[in-house]
Nucleic acid binder design. Sequence first.
DNA 1: GGAGGATCTGTGAGCGCTCACAGAATAAGA
DNA 2: TCTTATTCTGTGAGCGCTCACAGATCCTCC
Lengths: 340, 340
Amino acid sequence: MSETRTRPKRATIFDVAAEAGVSRGTVSRVLNGEPYVSQSAREAIEAAIDKVGYVRNTAARNLATQTSGAVALIVHEPHAVFVEDPNIGAILLGTNTALSDADYQLVSLIIDSDRDTDRVVSYLGGGFVDGAIVVSAREDDPITAALERLHIPTVLVGRPETAPELPSVSIDNRTAARDITERLVSTGRRRIGMIAAALDRDSGRDRLAGFRDALGDAFDDALVVEVPLYSFHSGQEGMRQLLRRAPDLDGIFAASDAIAAGAVDVLKEAGKRIPNDVGVVGFDDSAWALRCQPALSTVRQPAGALGARAAELVLDEIRRGERQRGVVLLPTEVVWRDSA
Amino acid sequence: MSETRTRPKRATIFDVAAEAGVSRGTVSRVLNGEPYVSQSAREAIEAAIDKVGYVRNTAARNLATQTSGAVALIVHEPHAVFVEDPNIGAILLGTNTALSDADYQLVSLIIDSDRDTDRVVSYLGGGFVDGAIVVSAREDDPITAALERLHIPTVLVGRPETAPELPSVSIDNRTAARDITERLVSTGRRRIGMIAAALDRDSGRDRLAGFRDALGDAFDDALVVEVPLYSFHSGQEGMRQLLRRAPDLDGIFAASDAIAAGAVDVLKEAGKRIPNDVGVVGFDDSAWALRCQPALSTVRQPAGALGARAAELVLDEIRRGERQRGVVLLPTEVVWRDSA
DNA sequence: GGAGGATCTGTGAGCGCTCACAGAATAAGA
DNA sequence: TCTTATTCTGTGAGCGCTCACAGATCCTCC
């Protein structure tokens, strides 16, 4: 319990050196885990750090190393989606934790309009960040292109097909979609439809592909409807269309829990009972899933872990220059509840 | 269009000085908006800044000024709430924008468990942030106490009663709650209940008080039920209780849109028609409001603006030492839709 | 015309750290 | 024993900026 009446004067590397009876250089070496430090010096320094309560001054370090100590998290979504989408929040949280553990700052850049694109690109060119994580990159994303041009270490969350050289972390959407659809099949559903979304991203396309995989010959184009967003509203809209086309369907795979919730809403209004008349499954295992009546069967997506893993990958590249090649897939899990 | 094949060497204050034919000191003065700079020098410097594409090196500035250039956003909520609550997301966004406009970094500290409290307190003591914004502070919050002890400029979003010396930004929950309840009354509802929440915070208490204000003598204790969280689930729970107590009620004021959505759910299940049999109003104007069937009448809360305003207040205190006294109230607005 | 006050400008030092280099200590081999 | 690696340590310079100080220039007024 130290006295904290006034803002404490922070100890510097100099104080540590004096306390340990060595020079600044040696302290710096210990701090950075460099070799060529004697056991005795190391121990003395570690004790001294503890004693004087030293913590590194990031600004000084960044100035000396000509780095920023910051990583950008670039989210290319309207503000509304950013606020609403639980996955994005979880990714942000995961990234934030991983970065601050490593003493890095997270700078979040939200790109809402196209005007923002220019602003962000020039910001990135200014050397304010040592690396970047791009969430839900679109095909032909100008930001991703700029990042490559600037040689800024970058990791994508989700994997668009046009930037295969960049490392990315994602989930196996296709397999997960196949798995959950298969269980829909194995519980006896015969006329299964899908509400697909975001077909301009890998997540959307792969979920559709997985659905197709599971149905095999039974796949029927007419039972797939595409909606623009992973949203409740889109779910309602899609479900209405689908019901018009095929009033007799008995299973629905929705590309996200929010969509599934919208679908459930419309189905109930149409007098269908869930899961008795129609089985519904979603994707994400977000709070939507539990909010539904009945609770949604869905695929658990490790959103926080995705963010954390992406952070670790950029850090690897920033600090050791090691670029992970290709895509890292994190495991998903089917969660079976009451809606199917 | 400059060549960007390799990471561009950033221009320094020195380059600007050379280009403008003045000294570093004068450039620094212009950069910091200090007086005593001749018109001609100022113009030359501004032109030079443009020409060489100078942007200030934050690390160097922070080192020289002995500041961190960062403001903490402290959210004392479980991770789940952080991810789900649209208000928190919007506050974060507003804060982030305001801070980065002023060249400050936002550091988000999420306190989930009590273990985090210690970690955060010691982090704050380390001089890593120049100011702090505390969202949804509880009564007797240990973090708030630590912040005062450390003399770190702090602004609260929402106003707990035990920290009246700290400036805060909030909305007039009481008046807003009264207004929306009054419109419920004026449209002919006679038996109006309330689902209250979070009575350990000003937001919760004031909404209840406003409700009471609007009903006057007609206020009936038995028609108020308290639930633990501003959540959909809590809304369902509360509504069930209320229906048991008073199956004949014809109006509901829910302390948040999420609660209202839960209430609507239960009411529909119970065969009530909305708004014909029961009128329902919420609070927040979050995405929940539009998600409801029928769309929710509610109070629009300027969450983004709350965050931005809080940021401006801390910045005022950090930069000019001016502490705003008391609470800043931002205006709300009743949004009349179809649920009442 | 010169004193005294404003207004403007340049310079050195220093913020806390890292990095390259040189020098000291130790170990190993002839 | 002396040489030559190898391991370890200290020192100076410099990252880009701000701040205090001193000096220069310009007015104003007696």
